[in-house]
Simulated assay, not measured.
Amino acid sequence: MDAEERRRELLKVVQTRKSVGLDELVEHLGVSRMTVHRDLDLLAARGLLRKQRGGASAESSLLFESNFHYRQEVHQPEKIALAKAAARLIEPGHVIMLDDSTTTLQICEEIKDIENVTVITNSLAVCEKLRARPDTQLVLAGGNYNDTLEAFYGLLCEQTLRKLRADWTFMSAPSVIGTCLYHQDQEVVRIKRAMMEAAGKSVMLLDAAKFRTRALTQFAELTEFDHIFIDRQIDPAAARSLQQAGITFELV
């Protein structure tokens, strides 16, 4: 494994077992104690785990789960599949909005061969992905920068988004309860609502884990979205509940 692969594996072990000793990590990864110490320091600095005497433990708070680096590490195959499915809606010349989610971030990889796409976003990660692409027009809605979420929020960001118009808005949510979408941060909720109001059509991308988590603030109903893409690993009971509620969605 290279360094990044090793850190992903280390993080996976800690997330799965919740608490792991240093010697166990050394044996599992086949590297020195010093290397594991360095990896733990890096991952702890990113907010992905808590380094403690003799090992590491997983965080579990809502603040931790909203951490951009944490979200970027989990459910990657599902997010890529969802992004591929959603990107089929995008045509040359379209104007799209991408929120700050790590699921819609994957759409950046899927629009490489689509000419003259304009992307409006509040996400610094999206900006980094697209800033060097000559065929992509990039519009960054600035405002108050949040380092934990790696995106911009606040009144200036909202006002900018409300003055723009897009063909599509693509977004995700950390929690689905019944047919409602929730987020733990009211600042993020306001930006998502502004994006939905600024677009002709809205698209929701959800991996199966979103149906097992809880957050504080409702920001939308699934019925408000023109297309809904859901990871096919969704619990069958949850899928049946959506169908019974009249929600149309595509399993990916």
Rank of each mutant, 00 (worst) to 15 (best):
A81R: 11
V31Q: 14
E250S: 09
L89S: 14
G21R: 09
G55P: 11
D147Y: 02
D235I: 14
L62F: 06
L164Y: 10
E197W: 13
E224Y: 04
I177H: 03
I114L: 10
V20C: 02
A83W: 11
L149P: 01
T35E: 15
M34P: 09
L89Q: 04
F219M: 00
H227Q: 13
T121Q: 07
G54F: 08
K192E: 00
E5S: 09
A215F: 06
K210H: 00
D41G: 09
L124K: 14
F211V: 03
T16E: 11
E91Q: 00
K129W: 01
L138A: 14
L48E: 09
Q72Y: 15
T213R: 02
T102W: 03
T35G: 14
Q233A: 07
F152E: 05
V20S: 07
V36Y: 00
Q52F: 04
D39S: 07
M204E: 01
E187L: 12
T213Q: 04
E73T: 06
H28T: 13
L62Y: 03
E221G: 10
D99G: 06
Q159L: 10
R50H: 08
E91L: 13
E250W: 02
H227C: 04
E128H: 10
T248M: 03
L130Y: 09
G55M: 12
R232H: 12
C108L: 15
E187T: 01
L149N: 13
R17Y: 11
V20L: 04
A245M: 07
E110T: 01
G246A: 08
F249G: 01
L149E: 15
I90A: 00
